[in-house]
Amino acid sequence: MTDDPWVPPVVLLAVDLVILTLRESRLHVLLVERGIDPYKGSLALPGGFLQHDGEDITAAAHRELSEEADLDVEALSLEQFGVYGEPGRDPRGRVVSVAYLAIAPRLPEPSAGTDAADAGWQSADSVLLGDLELAFDHRRIIADGVERARVKLEHSALATAFCGPTFTITDLQDVYEAVWGISLDPRNFYRKVQKTEGFIVPAGTARKAATGRPARLFRSGPCTVLRPPMTRPAEAASVKE
């Protein structure tokens, strides 16, 4: 036996932010170019360490997003979706990171600040397929964040926020295809949308088409939770990035 007092391990707490948006009908993720070591010059998620013991974790996430990408944090709703703390994930020591997700339409071009040399939107597909080299374990965090966003589209009316005030069923399908990363059968999609009560409602007008009949216009309905949900095709939902 030893009478030596127990000394707690040194653990650093950080935040990482997965910010997603649609650009040119494709899902994009916000990445920064690290301006400091480790991984100087590599792409990474915006984020960083808590500044002091009294700083709230969510407040730190908002601060880092503002400092590293100069985005309006008030316009984003951050949702905590994961904690990452495997030994060796950061060469600076034992670092536990709390990950946050935000997915929002029409986000502007970011600008770098503090320890980020650059900031910009990158194709989520390029990240998930490994076409871009990322620092730390950020590809895994992004994959988890993208999957969380895909599930949100199944169970909430979030997709309508990426359309205009009025939109066609095809416009809505484009959003689902971009976030889910798959092609959908138009007839099946139309049936699912119409079966989900309160998801969308007729706008009372139609959009003229170059050929064929004018497309019916809709607007977002009163429901925020979809019952039944807009579930992905089974073969797509089972694919692991």
Rank of each mutant, 00 (worst) to 15 (best):
V201K: 00
L31R: 00
G145C: 08
G93H: 04
D56I: 06
T196S: 07
T170N: 14
A237V: 13
E24K: 05
P186Q: 05
L129K: 14
I182W: 11
L129V: 15
G48L: 01
D118Q: 02
G93C: 05
R89T: 15
V225T: 15
R26H: 12
K195E: 08
E55F: 12
L217S: 08
K192V: 10
L71S: 09
P5E: 12
A234I: 08
D70S: 12
A61R: 03
Y190A: 07
D90E: 13
E241H: 15
Q51R: 14
P214T: 14
P87L: 04
E24M: 04
D4Y: 10
C223H: 04
A44C: 02
A99P: 08
P38A: 06
V32K: 00
F199M: 01
K192D: 10
D171Y: 04
F136A: 09
R213E: 11
A203L: 04
A99Q: 03
P91R: 08
R219N: 01
A124Q: 01
R106N: 15
V225W: 10
L132E: 13
T211N: 07
R89V: 11
G198N: 01
A61D: 06
V18G: 07
L184D: 11
D90Q: 08
R213T: 14
D137M: 08
A99F: 04
T168G: 06
L45I: 08
E147C: 03
A149M: 10
Q51A: 15
L158D: 02
A102V: 12
L132H: 15
G181Y: 06
L101D: 08
